[in-house]
């Protein structure tokens, strides 16, 4: 199984702060194929954004450093590349869409020019050629009247339109991997739906692999093919989409699912939150970071990080609770939805 588009193994990114070492990402592995979408789910401090920025080589050093792992993109280990090669990778092979399209655009430069600059930078096109391509790119992401809109400034665009511009910039170089970090979180729900559609279309058009980072399990259910659930810098569960929603094995995943108010619930059900507070990344235990909040904690949970256990095809989980016991516990959860036949 060597020919993944992206193959991340044992990625670890630490931050060396005045107060101690923050293990923001700790031994994370995943793969991504063309035309596939992986959703990385987690709460603040889970390491999901740091993991993506490690891929892009954008961890500020100091205080951060990718301390371990291999990041293979099409047979090339990104960790061995020079700064210059990494810059080329960022524009051409991996592109990123950020959460806040307002602060990611230059407020005093015309939108068309910003997209064109991205093209000139990475594709060595002439200015007029780049301009033409920029307008085409804007039109492709669904900006109506693109030639005129290209002459406008970011403040004349709504949030949703700005996010389209960001996508146009990101896909202008036909990237292999598109990282979208909470691309819809700052947008209104009706606009969110539009943006997710655009991302999907772009993925289809360029055969890209998409890494979608989000805290919103609804968006995950909508577009992800597989899901990596992160907690305290660790991957706790990694599985195809339906497996996560209907055959989850990790108590944290259960907790996330039963914390969600459901729009489609016919009667009012009391939520089952995860008790306690998010962990302090400076004082993560040696073992599972979920200890202290996990309602089913065992003595060995504090000792060592459990190895990955494969519970179904392509479905891995890190948990010390024996599998039969896990299934019994899960059956008692009020919200749990058994896999549909």
């Amino acid at each position: 199984m060597a020919d993944h588009l992206l193959d991340v193994k044992d990625l670890s990114t630490y931050f060396f702060t005045h107060a101690g070492v923050v293990k923001a990402v700790n031994g994370v592995s995943f793969t991504l194929e063309r035309n596939e979408t992986i959703g990385i789910v987690g709460e603040s401090g889970s390491g999901k954004t740091v993991a993506a920025m490690s891929l892009l080589g954008l961890i500020p050093d100091p205080p951060g450093k990718v301390v371990g792992g291999t990041l293979m993109l099409d047979q090339r280990d990104l960790r061995t590349l020079s700064d210059e090669e990494m810059r080329a990778v960022r524009g051409n092979d991996i592109a990123m869409i950020f959460q806040d399209p307002m602060t990611s655009l230059n407020p005093v430069m015309k939108v068309g020019k910003q997209v064109a600059e991205a093209i000139v930078l990475h594709q060595k096109k002439s200015n007029s050629e780049a301009r033409r391509m920029a307008i085409a790119a804007l039109a492709r992401v669904g900006i109506p009247d693109a030639p005129r809109r290209a002459e406008q400034y970011p403040f004349e665009f709504s949030g949703g339109m700005r996010q389209r511009v960001m996508i146009a910039m990101a896909v202008s170089s036909n990237p292999d991997v598109l990282i979208a970090d909470e691309p819809t979180t700052a947008l209104d729900v009706t606009i969110q739906a539009q943006i997710i559609d655009v991302i999907r279309e772009m993925q289809f058009e360029f055969n890209s692999g998409v890494i979608l980072i989000t805290h919103d399990l609804g968006v995950i259910a909508e577009i992800a093919d597989k899901v990596m659930v992160m907690y305290g810098g660790r991957t706790v569960e990694y599985a195809p989409i339906d497996e996560i929603f209907y055959n989850a094995h990790h108590p944290y995943t259960w907790g996330l699912l039963s914390s969600l108010p459901r729009l489609d619930a016919s009667k009012k059900v009391r939520l089952t939150p995860i008790e306690g507070q998010p962990p302090n990344l400076l004082f993560l235990p040696e073992g599972c970071p979920f200890v202290g909040r996990c309602p089913h904690e065992l003595p060995q949970c504090r000792g060592e990080w459990p190895a990955e256990e494969t519970v179904a095809p392509a479905h891995g989980v890190h948990c010390w609770i024996p599998v039969d016991q896990r299934l019994a516990l899960r059956a008692e959860l009020p919200h749990f939805k058994e896999p549909a036949a």
């Binding site: 603040s44 959460q99 990611s104 949703g160 909470e182 979180t185 700052a186 947008l187 606009i191």
Partner: peptide, 12 residues
Amino acid sequence: NLTETPTVDARR
């Protein structure tokens, strides 16, 4: 639209 719905990690 941008400022209405930030979550804790609604930042750069």
